[in-house]
Structures are given as C-alpha cells and as structure tokens.
C-alpha cells in the first residue's frame, strides 16, 4: 500500500537530535529490565520527540495496572497502542492528560516528559489543568456537550479566556475545516450537537480538541463506536492531523493501526512488549507475543 509505504517508516532526515529531545538510546538497557530485547533496536536514533514516558507505572489502589513503561512519542507522527483488552493501553494514554486524577486512590510513578519544555506531566508540581489545555484528548465514544455545535468547538477556547467574538468565530471555523466537518455543519452551527450523527459527533469532538491548539493529541479508540465509513473519515483525519501534532492513539483494530500509524507499541498485561516502526511490528515483529497478536492468533 502506498499509504503505508509513505507513512509507516520513520521519516528520514529527521534524526538529528537537538538539545530538547531525548533519544531512546540514552537509557542503558540494564535500567530497563522490563523491556524485551525485541524493543531495543526500535531505532536508537528517533526523530525529535514530543513526549517520553520513562519508567511509568500506574496503580489503581493496590493494583498495578502499568509496569515501568518506557515509550518515546515522536513529534509529528502517529503512535498506535495495540494489545488485548485490559492490557493497560487506555490507562497509559489517560496518564498523559492526568484524567486519572479525577478518581480517588490512583497513583503514578515514574515520569512523562513533555518536550520542548521538558516538564514532567505527572509531577505533583505540575497543574493538571494546564497539562490538559496543552494536550487534547478524544474519547472512545463521542461526548459532545449539551450545547450548540459552535459552543462545543469554542469550549476550549473560552476556557483559555478568549472572549473576542471574531477570534472565536475564526478559530472555530478553522478547527471545523481542519477536521473536514465544516461543509456538513456550517449552516447549523447554532443547532444542538446532539442532532449530528455519531461519526459527525466524533469529528466534532476532534475539532473541539484541535480548536484549543494542543501540543499533542490523545485518541482513545476514537472509532470503536462508529461504522466503517465514519471510521475511514476519522483515519483520513488522523493522517492530516499528523502534520501538526504528535498523535497517540489506542486501537483494537489492527488494520487501523497499520494504516494510520507510523510507530506501534504492543502492550500486554500492563507491560510494553515491543515498540517500533509500524511496518516492523506488523511484518517483522521481534517478539513471539507480538507476532501472535498481530497475526490474530490470540487476543
């Protein structure tokens, strides 16, 4: 597939590591005992990173859901998280904008470094509200607010204190255009968002996240509640968004991961089993578990 050929490999010429990036290889293998040998050669020299999870563990009460995960997220690329249900994909993703903070008895351990500021997202000193403004999220099911289409997209902008009507209007329009839903809604911006179809609602939610101009985008199975045609539109959209953002996407759909992502991480039982370029993971996985999963032998 030309699309895969075009996107699956990490883009060349981008491998020079500048000061504000952290190469995966700067951590010695013995410090990452949980990582299999398979994940090590996942290109020691990656393009500039947007974020880097380092020894990230997460606990629901006493239950450890994530075990010291090391995962780099390359800027302007799509990283897919795959793995069987309950393996911790969504838990991992939700660490990035501190949604876990809303629930009692949860605990993070380790670091998620966000570049270029090199702030540790999960540090207690970091305000989760600030992080959520900087990192957009799209959820499993479309979750528009009980407001008009316009006000849904303007929500994040208003939270950021933008009051100017012209600026709001322009930025809402830009966001709706960049998520390819403008033509469908431009004549009914003041209608309730609940009047839209499921696929339209989900693209509206992506527009809502994009309008706030986040630094990166998290997507938690954004197509799981949609039919194939609506899913296809969202996948096209993800490929567009990649030009501006680092995207981290959780998916149960192997085809989707292979079509839409540049890098893929396979998780199992709260551990990262293998990480690498998407073509490598799907055509030449190093680990037996990864191979079994991507070929459909388990999970």
């Amino acid at each position: 597939m030309s699309v895969e050929a075009q996107f699956a490999q990490p883009r060349p010429g981008n491998t020079v590591l500048t000061g504000n990036t952290a190469p995966l290889g700067n951590t010695a293998p013995h410090q990452r005992p949980h990582m299999t040998e398979a994940s090590k050669p996942a290109s020691p020299q990656l393009p500039p990173l947007k974020a880097h999870a380092k020894k990230l563990s997460f606990f629901y009460g006493t239950h450890q859901a994530l075990h010291a995960i090391d995962l780099p997220l390359v800027d302007m690329h799509v990283t897919a998280l795959i793995g069987p249900s309950g393996c911790g994909k969504s838990t991992f993703l939700r660490c990035f904008n501190r949604i876990h903070d809303l629930y009692p008895n949860t605990r993070y351990d380790g670091e998620i470094i966000l570049y270029p500021s090199a702030a540790n997202i999960i540090s207690r000193d970091v305000d989760p509200i600030e992080m959520r403004m900087r990192i957009g999220m799209v959820f499993q099911k479309p979750n528009p607010f009980p407001k008009s289409i316009f006000e849904n997209v303007a929500y994040g902008l208003r939270l950021k204190g933008i009051r100017n009507a012209t600026e709001l209007k322009d930025r809402v329009e830009t966001a709706l255009k960049s998520t390819a839903i403008w033509e469908e809604v431009k004549n009914r911006l003041n209608k309730s968002a609940y009047d839209l179809s499921g696929g339209q609602q989900q693209r509206l939610c992506i527009a809502r996240a994009v309008a706030a101009e986040p630094e990166m985008l998290l997507m938690d199975e954004p197509c799981s509640a949609l039919d194939p045609i609506a899913s296809g539109k969202i996948e096209d959209l993800i490929r567009e968004l990649r030009k501006k953002y680092a995207v981290l996407i959780v998916t149960h759909n192997m085809q989707q991961a292979s079509r839409a992502s540049d890098y893929t991480a396979f998780m199992y039982m709260g551990k990262l089993v293998e990480f690498g370029a998407t073509t490598d993971i799907f055509t030449n996985p190093k680990s037996k578990e990864t191979e079994d999963y991507v070929t459909g032998r388990f999970g």
Partner: peptide, 27 residues
C-alpha cells in the same frame, strides 16, 4: 450524567466549577 461527559470537559482543561456549571448541570 455520564462520566464520559465530565472527562470530556476536564480533558479540555476545565476546572470543577466550569465542568459542573457548563456541562453537568445543562446535561
């Protein structure tokens, strides 16, 4: 009101007050 709606609001960077009055109560 489903938790998903609250998460959507908090996920945008809303405070508890903003989430309660702009999203939860209208829902």
């Amino acid at each position: 009101v489903p938790m998903l709606l609250r998460e959507g609001s908090y996920g945008m960077g809303a405070s508890r007050m903003q989430t309660a009055f702009k999203v939860v109560i209208p829902s």
